[in-house]
Every structure is written in structure tokens, then in C-alpha cells.
Amino acid sequence: MKTRIYVTLKNGVLDPQGKAIHHALDGLGFTGVNDVRAGKLIELDLADGTSDADIDAMCRKLLANTVIENYRIERV
């Protein structure tokens, strides 16, 4: 069972990498980019029957740092 975890920086947390990507896009001549935020995609291949609670615990205990990051779970 494939599950995707999207980890993104919380609103208000400065994202230096997003800013650098934004500048690079500007440098390539792509105008009209208002903002860039960089995050992570983590793909898990889980045993059938893995509970939502377990996946949530994986996110809270390791995959995301909830001080600065949000996560979203997507079962594929």
C-alpha cells in the first residue's frame, strides 16, 4: 500500500531555499512567480491494514518536525 507524505514548512516560517529558487526563476526570466515554498515528498510502502493512527504517529515522531513543518498524508 503506497502512501505519500507531503512535508511543508508552516506559514510564517522563513524558507531560505524557497527564496533562492524564486530568485533563480527570476534570473531565468520567468516573471509572475509570486512566491516559492520548498518541501519534501516521502513515499512509504506500507503493509496492508496499517492504520491511519500509525501513519500519523510516524509523521509526528520522525517524518515531520512539527515545530516548523506541517504534513499531509495521501493514500495512493
Binding site: V13, L14, P16, A20
Partner: peptide, 9 residues
């Protein structure tokens, strides 16, 4: 708290 990528990258 947390330690993030340096502001200047």
C-alpha cells in the same frame, strides 16, 4: 525550537 538552513543558504 528548531535549527533551519542558514538564511544566506
Amino acid at each position: 525550537g528548531a535549527l533551519m538552513r542558514n538564511a544566506g543558504l
